[in-house]
Amino acid sequence: MEPEEQSAKTSGAAPLSSYVESWTPGPVTDEDPLPLGPVAALSAVLDLPGTVAKNGDPLPPLWHWLYFLNWPTQGKLGPDGHPRDGHFLPPIPQRQRMWAGGRCEIREPLRLGEPAERVSSLGALTAKQGRTGELLFVTERREFRQRGRVCLVEEQDSVYRSGRSAGQHPGVLDELALPDTDAPWQLPVHPDPALLFRFSALTANAHRIHYDAPYCRDEEGYPGLLVHGPLLALLMLELPRRRAPDRRVRALSYRLHKPVFGGEHLAACGTPAGEGAELRVATHREERHATAEVTFG
Rank of each mutant, 00 (worst) to 15 (best):
G229P: 01
F137A: 07
K258A: 10
T295R: 03
L234E: 11
V260Y: 05
N205V: 14
V150P: 00
A206Y: 06
G171C: 09
G102C: 10
E134G: 01
P3W: 00
G171T: 04
H210L: 00
E105V: 11
H87K: 15
F261Y: 10
P58E: 10
R95M: 08
C216H: 05
E5F: 03
L235Q: 10
P72A: 09
D30W: 14
A100E: 06
G86Q: 07
D157H: 09
E2R: 11
A53G: 12
D192M: 04
E154W: 02
L226K: 06
G37I: 11
R208Y: 12
A206T: 15
E275K: 13
G263Q: 02
S18M: 08
Q94F: 06
L279K: 07
A290F: 06
E238V: 10
A244C: 12
A277M: 04
S43D: 15
E175L: 13
F261T: 13
G229F: 03
Y215W: 09
R198G: 13
E2S: 01
R161C: 01
Q74L: 08
L252E: 05
R285V: 07
Q96K: 07
R97V: 07
G50F: 03
G123I: 06
G276E: 03
Q6C: 07
I209N: 07
P15R: 05
R285P: 04
E293H: 09
T271G: 03
A124S: 11
L122F: 12
G123M: 07
V119I: 15
R208E: 08
A13C: 00
F199G: 01
P33D: 11
H210Q: 06
G133L: 03
A41T: 14
S17A: 09
R131Q: 09
P230W: 05
V260Q: 09
G276N: 02
W63N: 10
L252Q: 01
S158A: 13
N70A: 14
L34Q: 11
G123A: 12
H210N: 10
R198Y: 12
R147S: 14
E21I: 15
P27V: 15
L239A: 06
P60N: 14
V281P: 01
S200W: 04
E286G: 05
R247H: 12
G50L: 10
K76G: 09
L202C: 12
T283W: 09
F199Y: 15
P49I: 12
F137I: 03
F88L: 14
P184T: 15
P93R: 10
P179Y: 08
V20G: 00
A267P: 02
P38D: 09
M98E: 06
L266Q: 02
R280V: 00
P15V: 01
N70E: 14
R242N: 07
L187Y: 14
V281W: 01
D57F: 13
P259D: 02
P27D: 13
